[in-house]
Structure formats: C-alpha cells, structure tokens
Computed example of a mutant assay.
Amino acid sequence: MTVNYEYDGVTASPELETYVKGKIDKLFSKYEFIVRADVFFKTENTSTRNSKMKTSIRLSAPGPRLFADTTSDSFHKSASEVISALERQLEKRKGVMQTH
C-alpha cells in the first residue's frame, strides 16, 4: 500500500507522517483491499482558534473512493477523527462486498 502526503501551508513533519502511517497501517491490516491512501494537511483561516488544522484522507479501494476530512485544534486529533470516520465507511464497504 502506498501513502502520499501533501501539505498546504504547513511544514512537513516526519513525526506526524509516522503517526498517521501507523493508524493507516492498522486499517490496511484489517481491510486488505485498500490500495492507496492520500493524506492532506492544511491550515485554514477561521474565526475560531480551535479549528484551524484540517486533515483529509482519501482511500483508493475497489469501488468508489473513500474520503473523510475534519478540522480540529491539532493535526493529531483531526487525523484520529478522520481515521475513525474512514473505518466506519470501510466497515460498510466490507459488508457490501461479497466474495465469489
């Protein structure tokens, strides 16, 4: 599985990439049909101080791509929330898929 990172207005962070890669690897081990993950980190100009850091993840798997994003006060927190949302989507996708 390939994981691509893209930063928009954020300095690249190897520690953050390691954290997200660990979470995505857990998803990959549970759902082996995932082919690729694209991770986007972005800072947004908002009026609230607690929701400036946005994490988006797009997963390539059989069928339509899966996508989730969230904004929080830290990239670690928003990444965890995005992974949880994607796990719910993957569980639904796995239920629909049938083996022949």
Rank of each mutant, 00 (worst) to 15 (best):
E81A: 08
E91C: 07
A37W: 03
P14T: 06
K26S: 14
E91I: 11
I34N: 12
Q98M: 11
D69H: 03
V3D: 01
T99G: 07
V82R: 00
R65C: 10
L16I: 04
T43P: 02
G9I: 12
A79G: 08
S60Y: 10
T11V: 12
R88K: 15
I34A: 11
M1I: 07
S78N: 04
G22T: 09
K92S: 14
A79E: 02
F41Y: 13
L27D: 06
I57W: 00
D25I: 08
H100S: 13
I57L: 07
F67W: 03
A37I: 11
S47P: 02
L59S: 05
M1L: 10
T70P: 01
F33Q: 09
T48S: 13
F28Y: 13
T18D: 12
D69Y: 00
N4D: 06
F75A: 03
G22L: 05
V39D: 02
K94R: 10
R58P: 00
E87L: 05
L59R: 05
A85I: 01
T48H: 15
I34T: 05
T11G: 06
K26M: 13
V96L: 14
H100T: 12
H100E: 14
A61R: 14
P64T: 11
T18M: 07
S80G: 15
Y19S: 05
Q89R: 13
G63C: 05
K52L: 13
A68G: 09
V20T: 02
G95P: 02
F41H: 03
A79Y: 04
R58N: 09
S29N: 15
D73P: 02
S56F: 00
G95C: 07
H76C: 03
L90F: 06
Y31S: 07
E81L: 08
G9M: 08
G9P: 05
Q98H: 10
I24L: 15
E15F: 10
K21A: 12
L27Y: 07
T48M: 13
R65G: 09
V3G: 04
T46G: 09
S47A: 09
S80V: 06
T55D: 06
A12C: 08
S47I: 15
I83Q: 09
K23P: 02
D38Q: 05
S60N: 04
E91L: 11
F41L: 10
K26G: 11
K23V: 05
P62Y: 08
E87C: 07
V35P: 04
R36C: 04
K52V: 07
P64Q: 09
I57K: 00
E32K: 15
R58W: 03
F75D: 03
E17H: 14
A61V: 15
A37C: 10
T46R: 14
P64S: 14
R36P: 01
D73L: 08
A61K: 09
V39M: 02
E17G: 10
L27I: 08
E6Y: 10
F40T: 05
Q89A: 15
V35E: 12
T43E: 08
T18A: 10
